[in-house]
Design a binder for these strands. Structure first.
Lengths: 97, 97
DNA sequence: ACGGTCACTTGACGATCTGGAAAGCGACGG
DNA sequence: CCGTCGCTTTCCAGATCGTCAAGTGACCGT
């Protein structure tokens, strides 16, 4: 529905969020903790970036009880994938991909 | 798995500077005015970004009198090209390219 | 039931970064 | 001289960022 024209998306472009999107782009879902380790940031930092991605409608946050603990898992929404793809396309264009 | 450590270069990563580097990467030299038009920013903004790239040793600024006017032309230094290439490689890695 | 721990979340805060507007500046051209 | 061109610099106000500390809710051991 929402036409995603290739352009710079500041929500996606910030390094930590670009990494999160990049990780989520190749899997169906990834645990909060795993993303945090891969990105190499603190809980609070990841939490804040995830919140921004969530508010932009790019990431879905799912909480489920696993191993007697509430674990948070993240996944890209269709909108998020579109935004990420568009942004990557734009990056390639700019960087002479 | 060890946490992936992204070597983002903040000097190159900012949108306007990424664009400047992208432009300069495919030509030997480009006029200040042409870069300004391509990037779509004001004189002052471009000037400030160019200054940062220059201080990082990524861009060389050359002033020459042409048509009775001092024209400024920009070009990537070897260091700048290396930094840009490395950054683009990092972007591709992160974005799954 | 109660304190402690886990897995995040939120708030406070200082530091950094940006772009726009406008004044500055050196080199011509009239 | 004075004005214009082509940037440069300064001032400013807003946005963003990461750190640290405190907060929240669920669950576990005692």
């Amino acid at each position: 529905m929402t036409a995603v024209e290739p352009r710079f998306d500041p929500v996606v472009h910030a390094p930590p969020r670009l990494q999160v999107c990049g990780l989520l782009a190749v899997v169906e879902t990834m645990d909060f903790a795993t993303v945090r380790e891969q990105v190499g940031v603190s809980d609070s930092v990841l939490s804040k970036h995830v919140k921004q991605l969530e508010e932009a409608g790019y990431v879905r946050v799912h909480k489920a009880t696993r191993a007697s603990r509430v674990r948070t898992s993240l996944s890209l929404t269709a909108t998020g994938r579109a935004a990420f793809d568009a942004h990557v396309a734009e990056l390639r264009r700019i960087t002479g991909g």
